[in-house]
């Protein structure tokens, strides 16, 4: 996998070192400090920071503007883009806009259904789906072409990512689905939060059997649990999430004031175990509204200091 863009994330992954990414959710308002404050907390401990795109369909500051805030801080953003809210004109236009600010990483997603968010009565677009979005960015970058066939002057240099959820159903197509995303041109994957490590390892076995781990960089996704209540909620209420009962029990088994620390410990133990899984090339630590814990997780997981890359 040779380097094709100026992305720092791509260079670190290409160098064979484990990458670490994290995410910041933009605010429900226009104060840029909400994003810069979160970024300050994690900037020394991660290689790149994802900015979510109206996650769970709740209206927020746009991902592109928040990514630009990170660029102004000298940081490396990953622009998350969902196909729910934009047609192909807006998608291609936003990609060019991002590239004009030297944003070099993108995560292509379909997005949660709008019925989860604050605009339940709205339309969804889905002119493209996530796989077609991957194809679109790769075409814009590699062939310097718009979807309509016209040439792009100065094509966007995007390192192209997507999500994978090894825990959604049906399980048997979860490896073929990754293969499909690879065929579409995806270069890195950030997975859904992993709590069921056995199932994740089983998925990775399938990934290796088809040699897919040599065609894409897989970053294992982790979200520390803050409490047994959160674990129960994730287990029962969040679609596509697999939280084993023993994890809920372990959290519930410690006093309430110590559950958060237990959640951090579980997260670190998971990283330690997943480090030895062949094909896992890094970690995506999604500490939702808990960014201040990212440094501890990264340090105690033995992923600190982060590598420096010559520009």
């Amino acid at each position: 996998m040779s380097v094709k863009t100026p992305s720092k994330l791509e260079k670190i992954l290409a160098s064979g070192q484990l990458a670490v990414t994290s995410e910041c959710g933009p605010p429900r308002g226009s104060d840029p400090e909400d994003i810069t404050r979160k970024a300050e907390l994690i900037k020394n401990h991660v290689d790149a920071i994802n900015i979510t795109d109206n996650q769970t369909s709740v209206t927020r500051m746009c991902s592109l503007a928040a990514c630009i805030r990170l660029k102004l801080m000298g940081l490396e953003p990953v622009l998350q883009m969902v196909t729910r809210d934009r047609n192909r004109i807006a998608i291609q236009s936003d990609i060019l806009g991002a590239a004009s600010f030297d944003i070099n990483n993108m995560l292509c997603l379909s997005g949660d259904h709008q019925s989860f968010g604050d605009c339940k009565l709205g339309q969804n677009v889905h002119d493209l789906d996530s796989i077609q979005l991957i194809q679109t960015v790769r075409m814009m970058r590699d062939e310097a072409k718009f979807l309509g066939g016209d040439d792009i002057k100065c094509p966007p240099k995007m390192f192209v990512g997507a999500a994978a959820n090894p825990f959604a159903d049906p399980f048997e197509i979860r490896v073929p689905r990754l293969a499909k995303k690879i065929a579409a041109g995806v270069e890195f994957i950030q997975t859904q939060c992993i709590y069921n490590l056995d199932k994740f390892e089983k998925w990775m076995e399938g990934v290796r059997e088809r040699g897919l781990h040599e065609k894409v960089h897989i970053l294992a996704g982790l979200t520390p649990m803050k409490s047994a209540g959160m674990a129960r909620y994730m287990k029962n209420r969040v679609p596509g999430m697999d939280v084993p009962e023993e994890l809920v029990k372990r959290l519930a088994g410690v006093p309430k004031e110590k559950q958060a620390q237990e959640g951090i410990d579980i997260c670190i133990e998971s990283i330690q175990r997943l480090k030895s899984v062949d094909g896992v090339h890094g970690f995506h630590v999604m500490a939702i509204e808990w960014e201040e814990k990212v440094p501890e997780i990264v340090e105690r997981a033995g992923l600190y200091p982060r590598p420096t890359i010559d520009k």
Binding site: T83, R84, S110, G111, D112, H113, S115, F116, N124, H126, D129, S130, I131, Q132, A163, A164, N165, A168, D169, P170, I173, R177, K180, Q192, P239, G240
Partner: peptide, 20 residues
């Protein structure tokens, strides 16, 4: 499909049912 995905399913498919 609630998201009219041409290349699905999305990550919200659970036990054969839709995330919505």
């Amino acid at each position: 499909c609630a998201k009219r995905l041409m290349n699905g399913p999305c990550g919200g498919s659970t036990r054969g049912k839709c995330e919505i």
